[in-house]
Design a protein around this nucleic acid. Structure first.
Lengths: 151, 151
DNA sequence: CACAATACTTGCTACTAACAATAATTAACA
DNA sequence: TGTTAATTATTGTTAGTAGCAAGTATTGTG
């Protein structure tokens, strides 16, 4: 398990390549069970604790393009997951309110999402959890640094 | 750093959610620098050491649909990265040969890909590398188990 | 030999992504 | 205050992508 890794970068490259593909599959599966698309899944999840958010914030959080988000929101609104309301303070801005149905979806989604990761963790020795988490945290911040520097 | 994680699953869920989004961005950036699309990137990378492979194997390795792969291969072939040759032993089967240009692309791609991960590793303490790698390995096998069992 | 199975391609249709153009509103400031 | 610039979100358009079903060619099987 803890053998030497003379080419750690190659190993990490390979692992993240595989993980990326499989994690995408994982999200598609989850989204499908909730009868939504992956982009909608991300959009709903972007709310986190919040019940309503301006479109602008959603664009930032999801890193979807504005026009893409507009259409995703239109679809979700048509299906009753949310309503869009013009902000009275700044009428250019639109606030998206999750409906009861939307909040319900968000909760089920989050539960399932965490449950999936619990199942994954169950396959990993308990004493390795903490180091895995800090490793992933390290990786995320490093990756973000790379993304921000390389143009 | 190594604080307690009472809700490890939630933490992992959050981290992988973020990592997935950023890793996708990373692959898009890399593909863009090589003037190919992400699906083409995966297709090229699926060759690994091999210089030529049957289409069937590529379908399996990339988990792209047959028709999708056909079109990706057509595009890459038109741009001179590969040739398709009918297998003489089984004329239903088509073997894809990377051209010199294609092998060159595959090499540059792999170099850059590893280099990126080296840069990411540089931002992580060296003594954490081995545990990160084994953690990711654990996660990948666990994830695959989950994917195979859940329907 | 007839029929099923395999390997890949093509046609079609719906979906997605991204850019530019537009509309509505607010900010900046001379 | 009036004009111009900036912001926020949407729509039009166009090109690209995904996926299914049908099609072609070939091989395997009883």
């Amino acid at each position: 398990m803890f053998k030497q890794h003379p080419h750690a970068a190659a190993e990490i490259a390979e692992l993240t390549f595989q993980l990326l593909a499989d994690c995408q599959e994982k999200e598609e599966r989850l989204a499908a069970t909730l009868k939504i698309h992956v982009a909608e899944f991300r959009c709903i999840r972007a709310f986190r604790g919040d019940r309503s958010l301006p479109v602008k914030t959603l664009v930032e959080r999801t890193t979807l393009s504005g026009s893409r988000l507009t259409r995703i929101l239109s679809s979700l609104e048509k299906r009753g997951y949310l309503q869009r309301v013009i902000d009275t303070a700044d009428r250019r801005s639109i606030t998206v309110h999750l409906s009861k149905k939307g909040i319900d979806l968000a909760q089920r989604l989050e539960e399932r999402y965490i449950q999936i990761h619990q199942e994954i963790l169950n396959g990993i020795p308990k004493d390795a959890h903490a180091t895995l988490i800090s490793g992933l945290q390290n990786m995320l911040s490093s990756l973000r640094k790379w993304l921000s520097t390389s143009r």
